[in-house]
Write a protein that binds this DNA or RNA. Structure first.
Lengths: 190, 190
DNA sequence: AGCAAAAACTAACAATTGTTCGTATTTTCG
DNA sequence: CGAAAATACGAACAATTGTTAGTTTTTGCT
């Protein structure tokens, strides 16, 4: 378990540096230095630099998919599901600010099977999100907007929430959640 | 003028590659290969790889500032100014899809004076944008929302428009403009 | 045709990259 | 304590990086 803990420590540190300077611009020596050790020491805990990015991104993807599955199957209205999705993004953003920032930019460095797996997670999530949004429209809960544009708009804002949150860490998470719901959903309600 | 043209050719090619793989992951040899020449040949036209990124980003910053200045001083209502800002983003996105994609991620590789200059442009733009939005609220044209969150939300969507547009290049620019206005502004109108 | 400028080439550089190997040190725990 | 496991180390690697220098080829103009 200690090894796992050290491993997680490395991943968290790497996430912070990847966010600040980008994945490619962060060397394994940078990561090691930030941990106060030498670069080769890292390889007692990880197999490669790429592996770190892969695990960070896949993990976030799975967090989103997990949250989506809970919401999807909950016995609540579609509009409430939409609100819960916003809350999910807010929570994951606050709990994983660094990792989540990688989603918007560093996924380009994924390769091979992992790249495909990541895209699969992302596409599945967006498909479910779209489906919930569509149901809201069908049920007349929200305005008859261009659904793809509305989906894109919501996701853009939610994906960039980490950058806003980083400059406003003092905000109450619940207040942020309410504000986001107001901002993203109430504007398109019937 | 021929030299300038070749230079612009290189910059456009670099922008495309920077967008696909990221600035750091794109080598000067990659750029040269995409142009069908050898890497050292590039240096007859540019001074450094960094210079390319700097010019691409500063140029986009100036385009936005220029557009903002026109809108700011136009004899129209604040709400119309807001609509024109959306149109500005749509136009610049369509005209510079690759370069504009760098704004959201690759600015982290700017250093020194250029980095400061870029931040100055960005901050000035956001300040002006915020000011117009605030006037709309004061005049009762749009709902009394949390202004910083509303600003952030609009800018997130507008900054990510390039990714949406890339998957929907067949859309009529004017139709896109109208949809964006509907989506971003009408939702928060009084 | 001939000349100057522009643009491309080959060869090579110093630095940095991710990573491996074998060894030493520290920590854990019976 | 003492053995085993976990963790860190220094030295070194092959590959890739951005860039320079000097030279040759191509282009455009009179």
């Amino acid at each position: 378990m200690n090894k796992l803990s050290r491993r997680e420590e490395i991943k968290a540190c790497a996430a912070r540096l990847f966010r600040k300077r980008g994945y490619q611009a962060t060397s394994v020596r940078d990561i090691a230095a930030a941990l106060g050790i030498e670069a080769p020491s890292l390889y007692n805990h990880i197999n490669s630099k790429k592996e770190i990015l892969e695990e960070l991104l896949i993990h976030m993807g799975e967090e989103f998919i997990g949250g989506m599955n809970e919401i999807k199957n909950a016995p609540i209205s579609s509009l409430q599901k939409l609100e819960r999705l916003v809350a999910l993004h807010v929570r994951l953003t606050i709990e994983n600010t660094d990792s989540i920032s990688l989603i918007t930019s560093e996924y380009v460095h994924l390769e091979g099977d992992c790249r495909l797996a990541y895209f699969k997670l992302r596409d599945a999530y967006e498909k479910d999100f779209r489906s919930i949004l569509l149901t809201c429209i069908d049920e007349g809960e929200i305005k008859d907007v261009n659904i793809d544009l509305a989906l894109f708009s919501m996701l853009s804002t939610l994906r960039w929430l980490y950058s806003w949150y980083s400059k406003n860490t003092d905000i109450n998470p619940i207040a942020l959640e309410q504000e986001m719901i107001k901002n993203l959903i109430n504007g398109i309600r019937s």
